[in-house]
Amino acid sequence: MSGEQERPGTGGAAGESHVNGNTSTSTPAPRSQAGEPIAQRRGMFGANNGGDTSGYGGLARTVRMPAGSARPYGGYFDEVADELEGALEEQGLDPEAVIERTVVDRGELTFHIAREHLPAVARTLRDDPALRFELCTGVSGVHNPQDAGRELHAVYHLRSLTHGRLIRLEVSVPESDPHLPSIVSVYPTNDWHERETYDFFGLVFDGHPALTRILMPDDWIGFPQRKDYPLGGIPVEYKGAQIPAPDQRRSYS
């Protein structure tokens, strides 16, 4: 059993050296109101291997996430945005600087928050009587290499049981400086969620009480949910045919 093995006392696996060495000073790329690019498509039919004889092979287009929305947002979204902006101003924060972009898409409200202001925003959302987002459903990471200078995204969903509302906060940071403040002090439930997101994406939540791997083994190297981390797998034989590993199979986009 692996429990018999002794772990090296020093810990600190390779590949995680940047966790403590907070030397990088790169800042996130400036945020425009256009949606961030998420994919580059070539050709017409989505095939990414094999020849394209259709004549459309030279087509290239950028797929973008939904762009920033203008007021009115509709429903309770305007009220939430007003209250949040008002509460931030009371604290002496400039809402324009804190909320980089507001997106309303598919009936959901997303605030893109500048990373340094995340704890203040979370605390305001939780404590302001008109907002009262008591329940945080954790943090989900997204790795988007197309979004240059903001590759890693942390996405939070907050639920208000008092008002029956749901909003999303999104914080994006560069891969070269994957630091953002922890909000465990505001929502203790995020303890394990932030560890999970660190485990899979290498997002470093500064101020987390014990940011260690949670699902992967302690000495694992690399961050498995990043897009440049291969899925792995081996070809298998099925009914006489070689079936390639899942990430080697033909795919369409």
């Binding site: 989505g46 459903t137 954790g138 989900s140 997204v142 790795h143 969903h157 949910q225 369409y252």
Partner: peptide, 18 residues
Amino acid sequence: GVHMVSDGGTRPYRVHFR
């Protein structure tokens, strides 16, 4: 909860289960 991101393709870009 399910947080789901699509990049416009035939496969999920990211799915997270809470």
